[in-house]
Amino acid sequence: MRNLLVTTALAALLSGCAVSSHATQKSTLGVPRSSADMLAVIDQPGPISFETVASCDWQVDRSGLINLKHPRAKEAGLTDGPEKIQVFFHVLRHPTHGTFIVDTGVEKALRDNPSKAAVRGLVASVMKLETMKFNEPLGDWLAKQQAPLQGVFLTHLHFDHIAGMADVPAGTAVYTGPGEASFREFQNMFVQGNSDRALQGKAPISEWSFEPDATGRFAGVLDIFGDGSVWALWVPGHTPGSTAYLVRTTKGPVLLTGDASHTRWGWEHDVEPGTFSSNIPKSADSLARLRQLAAEHPTLQVYLGHQL
């Protein structure tokens, strides 16, 4: 019996825990479509006013951002070391549905009172937060807005994408890809407390209700508002629920890749992210699908996960 208990405990330890224990639910927002429906309208001007905010500058290990084992990375002579990146949030203003953000930048407390920030302790140390240069934490931006924030569309739940969540007003709707919050990894044993603090007081995480894309171009395609203005694209690999967003703005179509591609070099050379991804082969596949979309639509402006 004792051996069984030890074995069970070790199995639980090795399997890790979920990235967050925050409540989840199936999203009622969004209509499953095929990519053909999206492609029929992608090049038409849309109703969305769009803005990107570089919340902070940062440096992280290149081996996490780019798969340095990829033949093209080896041929280019890329080696590990600090890579300059930024942490973004993107603002979508819909004429009738209101203001939404994609990802969250960083919270004010991370700059003003780090010991009270959602991310602190061991996680903060590992993330090298001392290298951050703060530009506009989400709380500063929100304080200047007249219209209330209607919701947060997340590309995924890695902490550099929910690091501003503590500044989001209580009760705000939060959306992410399927299985994202429940995905189990050993490292989440250290991360979960930070994620839960960031999400405290927010509505349950609503997971996009993707259905298989009839054309097979993406794992799933969702028309978020039902009017063809904002599309969620399921691009698993970096994380199981990773989601990219296609936005038809007043100035043309915009693609927000999330961390399907962190860097400009990775995007331009078709090299997927490295050790930060949970499944590198799937990550490479999702990157290829997004690059094909961009190649077929030259007016598409591409915003990568951490570099412009």
Rank of each mutant, 00 (worst) to 15 (best):
D285H: 14
R2M: 12
I205Q: 05
K69A: 15
P47M: 10
P114I: 10
G139S: 06
A143G: 03
L308R: 09
K282G: 15
S125L: 15
R120I: 07
Y303G: 04
Q307T: 04
Q86G: 15
P169R: 12
W267E: 01
H156C: 04
H156Y: 08
T239K: 03
M165F: 08
I162W: 03
H158S: 09
F89G: 00
V91F: 00
D80M: 12
G64Q: 06
G171Y: 09
W265F: 13
N67D: 13
D112M: 06
C56V: 11
D37N: 10
E83F: 11
C17L: 15
V302R: 05
H97W: 11
Q307R: 00
A40L: 01
G64L: 01
N135C: 02
A260D: 10
P212Y: 01
H70Y: 13
V191M: 12
K133F: 06
D270I: 07
K84T: 13
D43C: 07
L5V: 14
L154G: 00
P273H: 01
N194Y: 04
Q192R: 14
G179S: 04
F183Q: 11
V302H: 04
P281T: 03
K74G: 10
Q200Y: 09
R248N: 09
A166N: 05
R217W: 08
G121A: 09
P148M: 07
I48A: 02
G151N: 04
P137K: 08
G121K: 14
G151D: 03
F225I: 06
M189W: 08
K251A: 15
H94R: 05
W208G: 04
V126A: 13
L138E: 00
T299D: 11
I48S: 00
C17Y: 13
R111T: 02
R184S: 08
F186I: 04
G151V: 00
K69R: 15
K84I: 13
G105E: 03
R93C: 07
T176W: 02
V254G: 07
T79F: 11
V221W: 03
Q187C: 10
A173F: 05
I224Y: 06
A40N: 03
T131K: 12
G121W: 13
